[in-house]
Design a protein around this nucleic acid. Structure first.
Lengths: 214, 214
DNA sequence: ATAAAATATGACTATGAGTCATAATTAACA
DNA sequence: TGTTAATTATGACTCATAGTCATATTTTAT
């Protein structure tokens, strides 16, 4: 009898419904301004029920983030092509990430939120830490950086992991600034596209060839 | 009669005392976990009094951030030397920022906090926006990038402002990741120093010479 | 039909930011 | 120096919201 299985599915579905409701609420009010009552109302559930499915507000936020990371990761997987060199794929991934940040503000903001948190100070930081790479976008970077070293388009004097993580961090920094300082850059007449372009220009040579740091 | 002036000074002093108390509290408990009562107790004042000097908890935080930005800016000013080329000064500033992030966690965390906030969603975002550059570390970058273009050590095909802001954003991204994902990198056996080094290596050539982005 | 298990509810508690009527202190002036 | 006015400080209070828990409802098993 499949009753247990059906219940399992229903439970999973309810979780997803809650996440969807939370996405809507967070999207329109932002995480900080959203209350659990807002989410409960949107999900057509009582507040207490939310706590049967999630331990806390932050945990709902993390669930959204996981979805976002996985969505971004999928887009990256679709994008990587063996027709391109390693470094070409690398910049394509950059574009994917940039578009993602513009097109999926809720997911992107969620990712930023957790990138901005000290894992050690988060209740379930351990869980995040252990899953940080599993199926995450950074894994795609590893892959492409490694391929680039093999096909000779990416310098191979730096460890793959160090390079991938540095590239991720740099890009994230740029996207974060684009997102949060929009008005400042409007004042300065700098467009997001120009910042991304500049970011690429500055990295292009360094990814390809060894520098001469003293 | 200097009574008004003295009172002015005393008021300013009390403000500073409150900021100092808040720094202590935020340092030991972190911003989120610190309460206004904590700060009041540390400052040996009542909670109500805090609100005579600051409009909100976040405004105290911003006052700390301003102090931090100004401290960092001063360190950078001390560091810039006409004995060095533009690009040399640039990497020196990077080192200053990195050391600052390690040695002044409260100030650095405060800066990160506001870099991670959407200015448009902050009550006093306008004020921050308008003062974002005045005497800020980014201004030092402008200065050094421009000098580098003049002495030929920094490529001059990109606007100074775009380049300075991109370099700031990238560095901030790397420092943020170092700070918040410490345990992850310990697991991966990557040291903060290696990430910084990699960051420099990747940027070195691109800062010096034009790349070949399609 | 009934008992047991699972799921849902919302009134309640706890915490902490921010307020405000009142009190204490300081300045001004006779 | 004593009295009044202005300034500054206080902490009990309000209010918002995350999270809990005793109770109610629904579902499953027999």
């Amino acid at each position: 009898m499949g009753i247990i299985e059906r219940k399992e599915r229903e439970k999973e579905q309810r979780r997803k419904d809650i996440i969807l409701a939370a996405e809507k609420v967070f999207h329109s009010k932002g995480f900080d301004r959203s209350t659990m009552d807002d989410v409960a109302e949107e999900a057509e559930l009582s507040k207490g029920t939310l706590y049967l499915y999630f331990k806390s507000k932050v945990e709902i936020h993390w669930a959204i983030t996981e979805k976002g990371l996985s969505l971004l990761s999928d887009r990256m997987t679709e994008t990587i092509s063996s027709d391109r060199t390693g470094i070409e794929n690398l910049f394509e991934l950059g574009d994917v990430f940039y578009r993602f940040s513009e097109e999926q503000p809720v997911y992107f903001n969620s990712i930023l939120f957790f990138e901005g948190k000290d894992l050690e100070k988060l209740e379930f930081g351990d869980i995040i830490m252990e899953n940080w790479f599993k199926g995450s976008p950074i894994e795609k970077l590893y892959e492409v950086v490694e391929a680039g070293m093999k096909d000779g388009t990416v310098r191979d004097d730096l460890p793959v992991s160090t390079m991938a993580n540095t590239l991720w961090a740099q890009m994230l920094g740029v996207l974060q600034v684009i997102r949060n300082k929009r008005e400042v850059f409007e004042m300065l007449n700098i467009t997001p596209g120009e910042l991304i372009r500049c970011h690429y220009e500055l990295l292009m040579n360094g990814i390809k060839t060894k520098g001469f740091v003293s």
